[in-house]
Amino acid sequence: MKSAVVVFPGLNRDRDMLAALESIGGIPPVTVWHKETGLPDVDLVVIPGGFSYGDYLRAGAIAARSPIMQAIREKADQGTRVLGVCNGFQILTEAGLLPGVLMRNASLRFVCKTVRLKVENADTAFTRGYSAGQIIDCPVAHHDGNYFADSDTLDRVEGNGQVAFRYAEGTNPNGSLNDIAGVFNEAKNVLGLMPHPENLIEAAHGGSDGRALFAAALDQVA
């Protein structure tokens, strides 16, 4: 499957993401600059992590109003898979493609460590390589990962199976409501998560628990 990585000024995890997608998918992804107004014909669009526009105003707020976002919105509406990791997750919530918002970590500290994630919904294009309830390792590195939504939205997200991953075993690093680490849109073709699965895909990373997410998103699984 063909994939594209969208690049905004201030991102710094784009190279890790490109390497992961090429390693797992076998095809080098296309890189798309944020000022472009169209996307190439791809099956997966990825917004990687970093600090677009220095997190000015709110994390992801300026990037979410970039020209490329309209094209991403249209692709998402057509069912194309869209994945946002870390700042990519913040951008997708700011753009209204995913519910809720990522606030400053409750500790006010930048957290950079490996956490444990519980796979909450394994019945989607992104998570079918895992089993529901499976616990996986995943690194996090963020200052604004504290997931918040008003109680109606939270009920809806929980009720629709839109929670993809939760921080498990007391590893919630940021104060997220209901330990939420990643959410889907209602149709489950858009996924955002704060942890970095692209940084845990081979032995040299200390593990490969993140690999199954990309294998699934790129249709590399049976």
Binding site: A61, R65, G100, A149, D150
Partner: peptide, 9 residues
């Protein structure tokens, strides 16, 4: 509503 505030929070 479009940029300066995130009306979720």
């Amino acid at each position: 509503t479009r940029l300066l505030a995130n009306t979720v929070i």
